[in-house]
Design a protein around this nucleic acid. Structure first.
Lengths: 211, 211
DNA sequence: CCTGACATCAACCTTTCGATTGACCGGCCG
DNA sequence: CGGCCGGTCAATCGAAAGGTTGATGTCAGG
């Protein structure tokens, strides 16, 4: 390992999780937890100081910016620190948004400490660190680009999620009910479901629509 | 405080969270973290040894028993330890199930360490410990019994939100479809809606169910 | 220019859902 | 004790949603 330790920034809104990460990572001699942030905004501000090599970033903050938005802001500047996503969920949309935003890795919070430490080292070295489960999901997606919803389909799905009937949707979007049904059939096929409620459930899980 | 420290069992499937709780609670001189469990099943087995005063229990385990089920199993025996729920969510359904199962308190994971320690002491003393946000939700429920869904109704509604059909729900809960429909009629009336999708939308907006 | 993806609509049919009515049972409370 | 509430179930009926087929127009891109 190099002589200079890896300088870490922990970004998570849960004090308990930050304490846990600190406890786990501080036992590694080549890591140094330099600071913590309890909001995504603070993480962005701190990351801009250039005092960190790796940022451990949660995705869900109680309020304010989302973790992937913060990641994009952090990695946008030159000489930015690496960002390692550390989250509870592994939905397609989350992973894609994070990778899109420039994350160097994606870990699940149930990962064992050794895996966590290994991922930090990998990220610090400038390489990509994906948890096996996450990598698997990404491969799945590549193989089936079919499930990307069109703008119109998302528009319809959003209204379904708000509880509107096909008739109400058709009026809201100035369509016939037939067209709404047609969109829904395509949505069901892409999401692999067979009803409006399960479509909403699937889309919510994948963060395709806003709730 | 008494001379004997409070003996704690940590039940959470995330190693990082367990480490965080340990770090936070071990700094309190009157607490001693005796053991950890990474599944609800193990927590039940350990709790039965009688070596603990308070169990800190997560609700969502990746696999196996749910935290509220484990809580019920633990508190069912005489001289059982107190169970303190420690979770990320604060929906009506979760809170009711936990209280029903005999939990002595309900905390959110974003609680500051001091609040956490105070709750453990309260539980150890045999009193009830509810986070302010949680207590507030319970009060709300008491004040407006008109739209207060029963435990069973919430159970049904939760499954509707997960995209299940009436037939699937009836099988999941070992009911007839007639009963599921009956519950749904009551749910619609209480929420002031007339379809399952809008019921889910309304319930999500009022944080009655978890998404 | 022609293909493919997207969006639009119609007609038809099957399944599910929602509404209604009525019933039974167990527990709780006044 | 006698309601009342919550939970359970049945039967029925109309309305809504879901599935299928097929058709048209537009527009971008090879």
């Amino acid at each position: 390992m190099s002589a200079t330790p890896v300088r870490l920034l922990l970004a998570d809104d849960h004090p308990v999780v930050r304490a846990g990460l600190r406890a786990v990572l501080d036992t590694e001699p080549d890591f140094r937890v330099v600071a913590e942030a309890d909001t995504a905004e603070r993480a962005v501000a701190l990351a801009a100081t250039g005092e960190f090599d790796v940022v451990l970033m949660d995705l869900q903050f109680g309020t304010g910016l989302h973790g992937s938005e913060a990641t994009a802001a952090i990695t946008a500047v030159p000489d930015a620190p690496r960002v390692l996503i550390l989250t509870t969920y592994d939905t397609d949309a989350d992973i894609l948004a994070a990778v899109e935003a420039g994350a160097s890795g994606y870990l699940l919070k149930d990962a064992p400490p050794e895996e966590l430490a290994a991922a930090v080292r990998t990220a610090a070295a400038g390489r990509s660190a994906l948890a096996p489960a996450v990598a698997h999901r990404l491969m799945d997606r590549m193989r089936t680009p079919a499930e990307a919803l069109t703008k119109r389909e998302l528009e319809v799905l959003q209204l379904v999620g708000e509880g509107l009937s096909n008739l109400q949707i058709s009026k809201a979007l100035f369509l016939s009910q037939a067209t709404v049904k047609s969109h829904l059939v395509h949505i069901y096929a892409k999401l692999g479901v067979d009803s409006r409620t399960s479509a909403v459930a699937a889309a919510t899980a994948r963060r395709l629509i806003r709730r």
